[in-house]
Design a binder for these strands. Structure first.
Lengths: 154, 154
DNA sequence: GCCATTTAGATTGTGTACAATTAGATTGTC
DNA sequence: GACAATCTAATTGTACACAATCTAAATGGC
C-alpha cells in the first residue's frame, strides 16, 4: 500500500526505468573518462572521433557522423576544435567538393599510443563489472536497434 | 589475426566498447522520447525532473540534483524554463533561505496523467527488448556504481 | 556574540547535441 | 547542356552538462 496511488494510476519510479539507468551510467562513464582524457586534451566525443580516425584515416564528415550517430551540427564545431588543437586536418575532397575529409595530423598520430592506455584505465575502473561488459554491450545493441527502428516508423 | 596490429598494439574497435554502446543507446532513447515528449512541451531531462516531482513534491534543488546526478549549473536554468512554462514554482525555503524548493504548479500537476502514457509508448518502442529491460537495468546499475566508486578514489 | 567554515544556489565559460535552414556541389532527366 | 532534385557541410538557435567561481545563508567552535 505504502506510497502508491489509486489503481491504474501507478507512476513508474525513476529508478526502475531502463532509460534512466542508461542516462546515469552514461554520466558515470563521462566522469570516469574526463580526468583520463583531460591528460590528452580531449573530451569524450573528441576521443571517439580520434578512435575512428586511428582505425581509418581520411573519412568524410558524413562517414564519421554515421559511425558515431552525430550530425554536422555537432561534428563541424568539434572537428574545428580538433583542428585548432593540431590533431587533425580538414580538407575539401578535390573530386567531390561537397565533402570535407578528416586526416590525422602528426600530433594526432602521436596520440595513438596514449589512446591505447585509456581503455586499460577504464577497464580498471569497471573492476568486477568488466566481465559482463561483452554481453551487456550486445544486449544494449538490441535495445538501440529496437528504439531506432521504432523511431524510423514515425 | 585478421585486422590486428603488431602485438601489443591492438587499438580497441569502437563497436566493441561498452561505453560506446551506452553512448549510442542513450542517443537512441533520446530520439525515441523526443517526439513523444514534444507533445507535452518537455525535453527528456525536464521529463525526469517532472517524474521526480510527481513522486515527491517540494524538493530542494539539491535533492533533485542528487536523484538525477545533476548539479545546479544544469538544474537552475532547466528549472527556470519549467517555471516559465508554468509547470513548477520555485520558492525560497522560509526556514533555510539557502534552499529553493520546487513545487508542482497547476499545469504541472495536470500533466501527470499524460506522463503515464509516455512510458507505455516507450515500452512499445522497445518491443521485444522490453522483456530484458529489468535485468539490463540492474546490471547497468552495477556498472554505474563501479565507475562512480573508481571516480571517487581519484 | 563573533568569525571561520560549510552549504545551497546562481553565474560564467566551454563543449556537446540536434532541429531547421542555408550555400554550394553533384546527379539524374530530359 | 540545362535544370530540378539531391547531397554535404556549415550555420543558427535552443537546451543540456559540468568545472570553476561567486554570493548569501547557516553552522560550529570558541
Amino acid at each position: 500500500m505504502a506510497k502508491q496511488d489509486k489503481a491504474g494510476e501507478r507512476m513508474p519510479r525513476l529508478e526502475q526505468q531502463l532509460c534512466f539507468a542508461i542516462y546515469q551510467v552514461g554520466h558515470a562513464f563521462n566522469r570516469a573518462y574526463r580526468p583520463i582524457l583531460a591528460d590528452l586534451g580531449l573530451t569524450y566525443p573528441q576521443y571517439l572521433v580520434m578512435l575512428v580516425l586511428w582505425e581509418q584515416d581520411g573519412l568524410a564528415v558524413k562517414d564519421l557522423g554515421e559511425r558515431l550517430m552525430l550530425d554536422s551540427g555537432t561534428l563541424t564545431p568539434l572537428l574545428k576544435r580538433l583542428e585548432a588543437s593540431g590533431l587533425v586536418r580538414r580538407e575539401r575532397d578535390a573530386r567531390d567538393e561537397r565533402q570535407v575529409r578528416i586526416h590525422l595530423a602528426e600530433k594526432g598520430e602521436g596520440l595513438r599510443a596514449q589512446g591505447r592506455c585509456v581503455q586499460e584505465a577504464i577497464g580498471q575502473a569497471l573492476g568486477g563489472a568488466a566481465g559482463e561488459a561483452g554481453r551487456l554491450r550486445d544486449q544494449l545493441g538490441l535495445v538501440r536497434d529496437a528504439l531506432l527502428a521504432a523511431s524510423r516508423e514515425d
